[in-house]
């Protein structure tokens, strides 16, 4: 995160060889491109390393945000609408992708009961070793304290159908 802030200063000191207007435009372009690159790299790391399917999709959206920032920065630099129009289509495709992907995530959750990407490792190539969690933390270091309500009233009767419904959700 620091390059974005620090880079502006050396760039501004390099700039005076250029006209003032171009200098500020170029500095803004580079700063925005670096912000976009950082967001893209963060999303890449997230999608590579996180195992929760939903967090993986959030990381993909983060990469799209980085791309959007870069496109708009180039659009501003060149005085051209193309970048901004492309970002609008990126938004559209992201909405479609999120809808379809979430449907598949829900289906995957219905099959395995987990949002874990490693739950699907039986689909891997035959020559790739199975990934096993070697050091699974027993529980979180900080135990979460949830608010507790004192029980009151009558316990409702258990619904017989409910267990069957829950079974395949």
């Amino acid at each position: 995160m620091s390059p974005s802030c620090m880079l502006s200063i050396p760039l501004m000191s390099v700039m005076p060889v250029m006209p003032v207007m171009a200098a500020t435009s170029m500095a803004l372009l580079q700063n925005a491109l670096i912000v976009g690159a950082i967001l893209f790299a963060l999303g890449l790391i997230g999608i590579l390393t996180r195992r929760n399917l939903i967090v993986m999709f959030l990381s993909a959206e983060l990469m799209l945000q980085g791309i959007s920032v870069s496109l708009v920065a180039w659009s501003r630099h060149h005085g051209d609408w193309g970048g901004q129009v492309l970002v609008i289509f990126v938004l559209t495709v992201a909405a479609c992708e999120a809808a379809v992907a979430l449907v598949f995530v829900l289906q995957a959750f219905a099959r395995t009961g987990r949002l874990d990407a490693a739950a699907w490792q039986s689909l891997r190539e035959s020559n790739i070793a199975r990934s096993v969690d070697h050091e699974l933390p027993a529980s979180d270091a900080v135990a979460q304290v949830w608010p507790q309500l004192s029980p009151a009233g009558i316990l409702p009767e258990a619904d017989a159908d409910e267990t069957l419904e829950r079974e395949h959700v």
Binding site: A37, R51, V55
Partner: peptide, 21 residues
């Protein structure tokens, strides 16, 4: 969930992301 507390290859992917950046 346990899979939220364990990531797959965090070191490698962090290095890859840093190199890309």
């Amino acid at each position: 969930a346990s899979y939220d507390r364990v990531s797959s290859e965090p070191l490698l992917s962090a290095v890859a992301g840093a190199v890309l950046l």
